[in-house]
Design a protein around this nucleic acid. Structure first.
Lengths: 130, 130
DNA sequence: CGGAATCCAATGGGATACTG
DNA sequence: CAGTATCCCATTGGATTCCG
């Protein structure tokens, strides 16, 4: 762990970034972004209402917000077709796809450890003193 | 990946979980949890105030909340030493440590792609029509 | 020291209604 | 269809104070 001295120093000045993954977390794991990216990744290019339907509980307002954010971050591309009725399609970018192995690892960790979390919660809740 | 059929089926009924990583995200990537886990992982067992100092901008209230949650999820163990003044130490568990490779992948993705996100944002913001 | 309690401000997100 | 606009509520998090 030599060479971490300067990062630790940075952490002292900007401590929320004491964790080198914080920036990624803000980009990728904000609320709703994972379901959106996942849906676009597995179902391919989708229209607005299709996304709304596939994700299920998200409201159009929030879906728009998150899609704009993802577009700005270069994770999705928005294609507007000037027709009547208008048609808009969203597609995941290569940058967005580059997250796939990350998601795979996440899913893998989940399949192996989610039950442990569940058990830990159960045990914790079983103690009446808290 | 056999046996995932029911989870996929669940996704159809509970669409917020259409993404198999949502559960993990809620556990691991809630606000402040990554800096806390990262700090405990790299600096080892720490006292409350030490954590507060290392993370820097977090308030004691929020730190307590997040530590409790992490403890409940089995990611952190809390050890209370009944002395005067009292001493409490927090340590990452094996379950918590099992996230390390995940964090490594995250950091790796960041080092290779964060600049692309930055550029995408710059380009997006350069268009005046929005 | 390690919190708990209280109060408060900001934010996010849901519901609804409307429009090009 | 693909949003936008508005209202409103719940949650989060900061600041402060106090306690065993």
């Amino acid at each position: 762990m030599a060479g971490d001295a300067d990062r630790v120093a940075d952490a002292a000045t900007d401590p929320e970034l004491a964790c080198p993954t914080s920036a990624v977390v803000d980009i990728v794991f904000s609320r709703w972004t994972t379901p959106i990216l996942w849906t676009l990744h597995t179902h391919g290019r989708q229209r607005f209402v299709e996304l709304e339907r596939l994700i299920g509980t998200i409201t159009p307002k929030v879906l728009t917000q998150r899609l704009r954010q993802l577009e700005r971050d270069g994770m999705v591309v928005r294609t507007y077709h000037p027709e009547v009725p208008p048609r808009v399609e969203y597609e995941i970018t290569e940058l967005g796809r580059s997250l796939a192995p990350l998601f795979a690892h996440l899913a893998e960790w989940a399949s192996g450890n989610l039950d442990k979390v569940e058990r830990a919660r159960h045990d914790y809740d079983a103690v009446p003193s808290r």
